[in-house]
């Protein structure tokens, strides 16, 4: 086989030729914008190209560090991310464990198929449905409240409900999807293990705790570390759609702040500086959680 590869070495240029277009794409649309982050250190002038005109050093970083809006957004991002992690990390595991216990094969398959569906739905549709369900005048929740003699609540505008709505929407959209990984790892457990547990007198609930969970623990660990690495990347589009001036005190996150200051107010350099700051924290989180994962579980994502 070695000989053959050598014989075909003169054909390798074809493989390189295939790469030309995609590589150009990567350079222009991935790496030029990365380089474009130098705008965070430079002043932008309209019509003078995307990289700014003169160096201003850390001016924009100093500015946003003094900006109360930045700190609010930073705090909101952290709180929402942590809340999301605490609630939406365990739920798919529980779902996978339970789904695995469903005896009827067809019912199991059916639940699975249905549970994937929300992942394919556009965030716009999700928000449209939710705002219909929660509408103060015609929403089903407020109709029920009305029947009970309670006042209608404008859920979508209330800052108190924003975080709950966001986290529950994530639960709704991604539980079934995320469970795929855990289910795969559960199905790879050898039936012998369960048989041995049964002989030892373990019932099905005990089997979950003494066989299933310990066996999928490495997968759980890797997923946890991955999630910590992605901590700051919230669903920006979803938040943008849920954002209203009245709930802004809790719904303004770093990404929406970048969007507002950058695209709406056209403070390009300022917004780029905030974006770059977020990106760097993100990459620190990813690399450190990855090396932690390597050390603890021997698994890594790159």
């Amino acid at each position: 086989m070695k000989k053959l590869k050598k014989a075909n070495k003169h054909q390798y240029w074809q493989l390189y030729a295939m790469m030309v277009l995609p590589l150009l794409y990567f350079i222009i649309f991935k790496y030029v914008p990365m380089f474009g982050n130098i705008l965070a250190f430079r002043r932008y002038r309209p019509g003078m190209g995307p990289f700014g005109t003169e160096w201003v050093g850390l001016r924009y970083f100093k500015l946003f560090f003094k900006d109360a809006a930045f700190w609010t957004a930073f705090k909101n991002t952290l709180i929402l991310s942590l809340l999301n992690l605490i609630i939406n990390f365990p739920i798919p595991i529980i779902f996978a464990l339970f789904l695995n216990e469903v005896r009827n094969r067809y019912f199991k398959k059916f639940v699975q198929t249905i549970s994937y569906m929300p992942r394919f739905i556009s965030t716009v549709v999700v928000i449209a449905i939710v705002s219909e369900l929660l509408s103060p005048s015609t929403g089903i929740l407020n109709i029920i409240r009305g029947k009970m003699g309670l006042d209608a609540i404008y859920y979508m505008n209330e800052p108190d409900y924003f975080r709950t709505i966001y986290v529950l929407l994530d639960t709704w959209q991604y539980t079934g999807w995320t469970a795929i990984i855990y289910l795969a790892s559960i199905t790879s457990i050898s039936p012998d293990m369960y048989e041995a547990a049964t002989i030892d007198g373990a019932n099905r609930i005990q089997q979950i705790f003494y066989v299933t969970i310990p066996t999928i623990l490495p997968t759980i660990m890797v997923m946890l570390i991955l999630n910590i690495g992605r901590l700051l990347s919230l669903g920006f589009e979803k938040i943008l759609l849920l954002y209203t001036p009245t709930n802004s005190q809790v719904s303004d996150i770093l990404d929406t702040l970048v969007y507002r200051t950058g695209l709406a107010n056209q403070n390009y350099s300022y917004a780029t500086a905030i974006g770059l700051f977020t990106g760097i924290i993100g990459i620190i989180l990813v690399t450190s959680s990855n090396s932690l994962s390597k050390k603890l579980t021997g698994q890594s994502i790159y």
Binding site: L39, A271, G275
Partner: peptide
């Protein structure tokens, strides 16, 4: 490129450029 991206503003300026 999966872990570090240009971000919203540099992308936007590139597209308009």
């Amino acid at each position: 490129s999966m872990f570090f991206t240009g971000g919203l503003i540099p992308n936007y300026l590139l597209i308009s450029y």
